[in-house]
Amino acid sequence: MRLELKDIKKSFGDKEILHGITFEVESGRAMGFLGRNGAGKTTTIRCLMDVFKPDSGHFVLDGRPFRARDHRIGYLPEERGLYAKEELVHQLVYFAQLRGMEKAAAKQSAKYWLSRVDLSEFENKRLEILSKGNQQKVQIIQALIHDPDIIILDEPFSGLDPVNSQVLKDIVREKVAQNKLVIFCSHQMGYVEEFCDDIALIDQGTIILEGDLSQIKRRHGRGKYRLISSIPETELATLGAHVLSHERNGTVIELCEGLTKDAFLRRLLDHGSDIQIFAEYQPSLTQVFIHEVGEKNGGDHE
């Protein structure tokens, strides 16, 4: 499956929130949809889910117009909402039935998922008595209970401890392996980096970066190197490199134009100082994010 968002625009009142969102998602590859708070992630997802009608633009699935109600979609909204005063199994079955599942199958599936996330003992308890993290797990089950083909998770890791995060990661990986179409909205770069194959980065209602994550990283690291050595920063300039930043795992440098990696390495060795690491630099997703968003915002101010 291949889901494409084509030039989605949405205004509230006179203010345009989405200025033509375009990106695509493929099944079997986890997609991370990233952006700062208020960038337009949730609005985009709501348009996709037909909560809001976009002012213009199209959603296309495998070449055909996509309407959310025609598909089995598992949706974890950013704003969590289940019935606080209802029992877990009861409301999970209700939601599964609303999405077309038979009652018996829904019940079976609810029990399977509750045991999978270690909540079996609460299956007949009211949601409100659960801790926040456990409620979050129930929210996630709600999105998976009817075995959807398309899974949209808006900030799924918020509120989960490391153990539960691992459980969720495994589930998401499993779904990706089952060739499901997975969209994963977050501003927690660590998780996205860990298992998303593709990303789309939205800022102020515009997609500013989209594509294969490892390629993007490579592109952002091109011409940059990571160096740990005893050479003082001032002397690096004389050797033909300028310092971009200092990170925990080394100094990030860029070579002057025309200077090759090999030539620079020779100069380092000739200098005679102690070199621990000299490697190609791969930025983290956070750095890519800050770089892209900062660049755009800086550009806006000019």
Binding site: I73, Y75, E79, R80, G81, F95, L98
Partner: peptide, 16 residues
């Protein structure tokens, strides 16, 4: 209430 606790969003994406 369904709107304020956002159950609404799940409901309207699950049913007509």
């Amino acid at each position: 209430r369904e709107k304020s606790d956002r159950t609404m969003e799940l409901l309207i994406t699950s049913a007509n």
